[in-house]
């Protein structure tokens, strides 16, 4: 037999090659080629903007009560609340009547506003505080940057105007 005449070393090498072909190679293929996805046991989450969960429109009374509390840091009496909500119902353009109502409140004594100097001394803090007060959330970085730029490039903008715009915003009418 030709095989029997071969040197022992060659026979051993042949045996190792078969071992590699039939045992180790399939093992390597299955362990390297079919690596499974790692599972970290974390729930999948859809990332939404922070205002996405506001889906319910405030009633007129809710809007007025919250607006008054935001501006004056105190509650509106029930009689005034009822009357003010009747006023809102009496005008068809809700944007317009909200604007008139807010500008009436801004004309009353007791509105709690930071001064212009306080706002400009800490614009970052003012923006965060305004978002928290009116929209009950923190600003995104994009929002923070927008307002920072806007306030810094518009010297005539004062806290009252910023508050006014938040109270007039669509997001403020939802909860």
């Amino acid at each position: 037999m030709k095989k029997a005449n071969q040197p022992l070393l060659i026979q051993q090498a042949f045996g190792v090659r078969h071992l590699f072909l039939f045992v180790l190679f399939p093992f390597l293929i299955t362990t390297i080629g079919c690596e499974k996805d790692k599972l970290y046991e974390v729930n999948e989450e859809t990332i939404l903007p922070p205002n996405a969960n506001k889906t319910k429109l405030k009633t007129d009374q809710q809007y007025i009560a919250i607006l008054y509390a935001n501006l004056f840091q105190t509650a509106l009496s029930s009689d005034d609340l009822f009357e003010a909500s009747e006023c809102i119902q009496s005008i068809g353009d809700k944007d317009l009547v909200h604007e008139v109502l807010i500008s009436n409140y801004m004309n009353k004594p007791g509105v709690i506003l930071p001064t212009n100097e306080e706002m400009r001394a800490n614009v970052d803090g003012f923006i965060t505080e305004t978002y928290n007060r009116f929209l009950v959330r923190n600003p995104t970085e994009a929002e923070r940057q927008y307002f920072k730029n806007y306030i810094n490039t518009h010297p005539n903008v004062r806290p009252e105007l910023v508050y006014f715009s938040f109270a007039l915003s669509n997001e403020y009418q939802y909860y």
């Binding site: 903007p49 205002n51 506001k54 929002e143 927008y146 307002f147 806007y150 518009h154 005539n156 903008v157 105007l161 910023v162 006014f164 715009s165 938040f166 007039l168 915003s169 669509n170 997001e171 403020y172 939802y174």
Partner: peptide
């Protein structure tokens, strides 16, 4: 300015 800031907020909410 009031309207400009409001429209920015509205766009984000829209």
């Amino acid at each position: 300015p009031i309207y400009q800031m409001k429209y920015f907020l509205d766009n984000n909410f829209e």
